[in-house]
């Protein structure tokens, strides 16, 4: 297709089986990490925005029943989900007269739902860290392998000219480039998502305490 053999695809075509396998693996890592980035960007973004909206409404509206009715509009918000679970539990244990037992049951429901929400938000995110940590090394492995073969070919051809050495090294370096291309967005996304999830987790803890106080005030 090209008049010149110099180019990214020409390098790919000349790679050995090991380097080719490494490149395919890195491509798969890249595709999967971008899939997770796309999914999590939407999921975590919505969870944070809707939680913020729900929290504003929660502090404005003192009646818990009314707040429960509005939670339908904040279906993706983490705080709204936790509130719904805790409120359902509170209404379910209404027959109990013991205040401490009600508090315990509601607190447990809050903790359970908060953990479930955190787990759902964190799902697949560690894979980004794995890609970020391992992809450069996988690429480096491909490069070392390619350079090793290149030196072997130098020994076979008994010539250390630039024409003998350069193509092998260039092919090998493609693996490192691919490893870095897969790792850099993964690491950046992992750091961003972790920071966002930690912020939502802190909000859930704060909200749990606040909601328990509201429930306890209502019982009195």
């Amino acid at each position: 297709m090209f008049s010149s053999r110099i180019g990214f695809f020409a390098l790919l075509a000349d790679t050995g089986p090991v380097v080719f396998f490494v490149l395919c693996l890195l491509l798969l890592f890249s595709v999967l990490s971008w899939t997770i980035i796309l999914v999590k960007a939407g999921r975590i973004g919505k969870a944070a925005n809707e939680s913020r909206g729900f929290l504003e409404y929660f502090f404005e509206e003192p009646v818990a029943d009314k707040v429960f009715g509005v939670t339908e509009h904040f279906g993706k918000g983490s705080l709204a989900k936790v509130f719904r679970a805790a409120y359902v539990e509170y209404r379910g244990v209404g027959y109990l007269q013991d205040r401490d037992r009600i508090e315990e049951r509601v607190a447990r429901a809050l903790r359970r739902e908060a953990n479930e929400e955190t787990r759902a938000l964190s799902r697949f995110v560690p894979f980004l860290a794995t890609v970020g940590n391992t992809a450069p090394f996988i690429g480096l492995f491909g490069t070392v392998w390619g350079i090793m073969n290149s030196f072997m070919s130098i020994g076979t051809s008994q010539s250390a000219s630039l024409a003998t050495v350069a193509p092998g090294i260039a092919e090998a370096l493609v693996a490192t480039a691919a490893g870095l291309a897969a790792a850099i967005p993964s690491v950046m996304a992992y750091n961003y998502f972790t920071q966002k999830i930690n912020a939502i987790e802190r909000d859930l803890e704060d909200f749990s305490g606040e909601f328990l106080n509201v429930i306890l005030n209502e019982i009195r």
Partner: peptide
């Protein structure tokens, strides 16, 4: 996943096109 695949295909197509133009 499909969007990610399309993004990668588009990326490689862009490289291919740029090389073709350079050639």
């Amino acid at each position: 996943f499909l969007i990610s695949c399309i993004l990668h295909v588009a990326f490689f197509s862009a490289i291919l096109y740029l090389q073709y133009r350079a050639a």
